[in-house]
Amino acid sequence: MRTRGKVAVWAGGVLAAVVVAGVVWGPGLYADWQNRNAEAAPVLDASGDALAEPTSLDGTWTAQPGSFAGYRVDEVLRGNHATVTGRTEQVEASVTLDGGALTEATVTVDMTSVHTDQPPRDLYFRTSALATDQFPTATFTLTQPATLDAGATVVDLTGDLAIHGVTRPVTVEAEIGQQGDDAVQVVGSVPLTFADYDVAAPSLGFVEVEHTGSVEFSLLLAPAG
């Protein structure tokens, strides 16, 4: 990996997006500002209900507008922690339920469209960190069926997560909520270590990116067709 080149590109983004805020405002003020601008973690819509009868959901469901995915990571600027979130609504998903069990699922995220509040950071994310010109998508593929119980709001989803050309097994504790007969919401977060996906977390002394983060998602699903 060309770590020196990655740090150089990332440094340009930081100098453009962080130094002005972090040095002129002060690290503490920058961290407070960044934390206020971070997106909240995905949660179930308050209007949703626990699953009534899972077998009634049998069939194929696909992602609808309002679905999103992204990442959450911490930056440390001179001892001050700032949470950064990236988001995109360019998400495709196909989920199949049979006999009240989730038997197939594929979720694909367009990584070229993930964005934060800082374009220079996004440039580093797309070019040096994830090389989205070579690996434009991230994909979760279910590898084990997951039984849905009546009244349930949580389900463990076991599958393969592919990011940056690297595929690793993961288990996601997802929350699920039913919104009438024609909509289901699934939300969750997948903790990850960047090195596991051959992604380097750069450090420039005055600012560092933590070596761990998470992938977050909220899927609004409706029956296909």
Rank of each mutant, 00 (worst) to 15 (best):
M1C: 08
R2V: 04
T3W: 01
T3C: 00
K6R: 12
V9Y: 01
V9S: 11
V9I: 13
V9T: 11
W10A: 15
W10C: 05
W10M: 04
G13R: 08
L15C: 13
L15A: 15
A16Y: 09
A17F: 06
V18S: 10
V18W: 02
A21Y: 09
G26V: 09
P27D: 08
G28W: 13
D32Y: 08
W33P: 00
W33T: 15
Q34C: 08
R36P: 03
N37H: 13
A38S: 14
A41S: 13
V43D: 11
L44M: 14
L44W: 12
L44V: 10
L51T: 11
L51I: 14
L51W: 03
E53R: 13
P54W: 09
P54K: 10
S56P: 02
L57H: 09
L57T: 03
D58F: 07
D58K: 08
T60S: 14
W61N: 05
T62D: 03
A63L: 02
Q64V: 10
G66K: 02
F68D: 02
F68K: 00
G70S: 00
V73S: 10
V73N: 03
V76A: 06
L77G: 00
T83H: 05
T83V: 14
T85W: 07
T88N: 08
Q90C: 02
E92V: 10
T96V: 12
D98M: 02
D98E: 15
A101G: 11
V107K: 00
D110N: 15
M111E: 15
M111Q: 12
T112P: 07
H115M: 05
D117M: 04
D117I: 14
D117V: 13
D122A: 07
D122W: 07
L123P: 01
R126D: 06
T127L: 11
T127C: 00
A129F: 12
L130F: 11
A131Y: 01
A131S: 14
A138C: 10
F140D: 05
T141C: 06
L142P: 10
T143N: 07
P145Y: 07
P145E: 05
A146I: 06
A146Q: 04
T147H: 09
D149E: 15
D156G: 03
G159I: 11
G159L: 07
D160V: 09
D160H: 09
T167R: 05
P169K: 12
V170F: 03
T171G: 04
E173T: 14
E173S: 14
G177A: 14
Q178G: 02
G180L: 11
D181V: 03
D182L: 07
D182S: 15
A183W: 07
Q185A: 12
S189T: 15
V190F: 01
V190D: 01
L192F: 04
T193C: 01
A195H: 02
A195E: 09
Y197R: 00
L204I: 05
L204G: 01
G205Q: 02
G205F: 02
E208V: 01
V209E: 00
A222Q: 15
G225S: 12
